[in-house]
Measured scan of single mutants.
Amino acid sequence: ELREAFRLYDKEGNGYISTDVMREILAELDETLSSEDLDAMIDEIDADGSGTVDFEEFMGVMT
């Protein structure tokens, strides 16, 4: 189920989504998050600083 959700956002099928897209997902899930909260969450999610979120990083957030 998580893989299907990931595929919805990984429109190009390249195995990752951008941190911008991940930020939008988080904002949709919790509309009360401030910009600073979102920045901090993205920094934590994208631990390797690649600017992308792969499936493993995505799973870590969603579980």
Score class of each variant (00 low, 15 high):
33 L>W: 11
52 T>G: 05
26 L>D: 00
13 G>L: 06
13 G>F: 05
25 I>R: 00
24 E>R: 12
43 D>R: 15
26 L>C: 02
27 A>P: 01
21 V>N: 09
55 F>K: 02
58 F>M: 03
31 E>T: 14
2 L>F: 10
58 F>I: 03
61 V>H: 08
23 R>W: 04
38 L>D: 00
33 L>T: 03
5 A>R: 13
40 A>I: 08
36 E>Y: 09
31 E>N: 14
40 A>M: 10
23 R>D: 01
7 R>C: 15
8 L>Y: 14
1 E>V: 11
63 T>D: 07
6 F>G: 00
43 D>S: 14
3 R>G: 09
2 L>S: 02
56 E>N: 11
5 A>P: 03
49 G>V: 04
3 R>C: 15
8 L>P: 06
19 T>P: 03
5 A>M: 15
60 G>P: 04
9 Y>I: 07
44 E>L: 14
54 D>A: 10
29 L>W: 13
34 S>T: 14
62 M>W: 08
8 L>D: 09
24 E>A: 14
29 L>G: 04
20 D>C: 10
10 D>C: 10
53 V>G: 01
51 G>M: 04
34 S>I: 04
7 R>L: 15
15 G>Q: 02
43 D>F: 13
26 L>N: 00
43 D>L: 14
36 E>F: 09
35 S>K: 14
22 M>P: 00
11 K>M: 08
24 E>K: 14
6 F>R: 00
55 F>T: 02
17 I>L: 06
57 E>I: 13
5 A>V: 15
23 R>F: 02
53 V>Y: 03
48 D>G: 08
2 L>W: 15
32 T>N: 12
57 E>C: 14
5 A>D: 06
13 G>Q: 07
55 F>C: 04
36 E>G: 09
52 T>V: 09
8 L>G: 13
63 T>R: 08
17 I>T: 00
15 G>A: 03
57 E>S: 15
25 I>K: 02
42 I>V: 06
42 I>H: 01
21 V>W: 03
1 E>T: 14
51 G>W: 02
6 F>L: 03
19 T>L: 12
5 A>L: 15
8 L>F: 13
21 V>M: 11
8 L>C: 15
23 R>N: 00
9 Y>R: 08
3 R>E: 15
55 F>Q: 03
42 I>D: 00
56 E>S: 10
19 T>I: 14
12 E>S: 07
25 I>M: 06
56 E>H: 10
50 S>L: 06
63 T>S: 10
18 S>F: 03
37 D>G: 05
36 E>P: 05
53 V>D: 00
26 L>R: 00
60 G>M: 15
44 E>Q: 13
20 D>N: 10
38 L>W: 03
8 L>V: 14
10 D>Q: 01
43 D>M: 15
47 A>T: 12
26 L>Q: 00
18 S>A: 07
32 T>S: 11
11 K>Y: 09
31 E>M: 13
51 G>Q: 05
3 R>V: 13
45 I>H: 03
6 F>S: 01
17 I>Q: 00
15 G>H: 03
49 G>C: 09
2 L>N: 05
55 F>D: 00
47 A>D: 06
53 V>S: 01
59 M>P: 01
30 D>S: 07
18 S>H: 10
18 S>W: 04
12 E>P: 03
12 E>W: 08
27 A>W: 09
11 K>I: 11
59 M>G: 03
52 T>A: 06
12 E>M: 10
56 E>C: 11
48 D>F: 07
22 M>S: 00
16 Y>K: 06
48 D>R: 05
5 A>Y: 14
44 E>N: 12
49 G>R: 12
56 E>K: 10
38 L>M: 06
32 T>D: 07
55 F>S: 02
15 G>W: 04
21 V>R: 09
2 L>I: 09
20 D>M: 11
1 E>W: 13
52 T>Q: 11
26 L>E: 00
24 E>M: 14
6 F>K: 01
3 R>M: 13
35 S>Q: 13
51 G>D: 03
16 Y>V: 08
32 T>G: 09
30 D>P: 03
9 Y>E: 06
33 L>Y: 07
55 F>H: 02
11 K>L: 12
46 D>C: 04
59 M>T: 07
20 D>G: 10
3 R>T: 10
61 V>P: 02
1 E>Q: 13
19 T>H: 04
40 A>G: 06
6 F>T: 02
9 Y>W: 12
17 I>F: 03
46 D>L: 04
14 N>G: 04
62 M>G: 04
62 M>K: 02
53 V>C: 03
33 L>Q: 03
17 I>N: 00
48 D>K: 09
60 G>F: 14
49 G>D: 05
24 E>T: 12
31 E>S: 14
27 A>M: 12
19 T>E: 02
50 S>Y: 05
31 E>P: 15
9 Y>Q: 05
55 F>L: 09
19 T>W: 05
6 F>Y: 03
58 F>S: 00
3 R>Y: 15
40 A>K: 14
23 R>Y: 04
59 M>V: 13
33 L>G: 02
42 I>R: 00
24 E>S: 12
7 R>E: 15
41 M>E: 01
62 M>Q: 03
28 E>P: 01
15 G>K: 03
61 V>G: 07
54 D>L: 10
15 G>L: 03
47 A>Y: 09
29 L>A: 07
18 S>D: 05
14 N>W: 08
41 M>Y: 08
32 T>R: 09
32 T>Y: 08
7 R>G: 14
16 Y>T: 05
63 T>E: 11
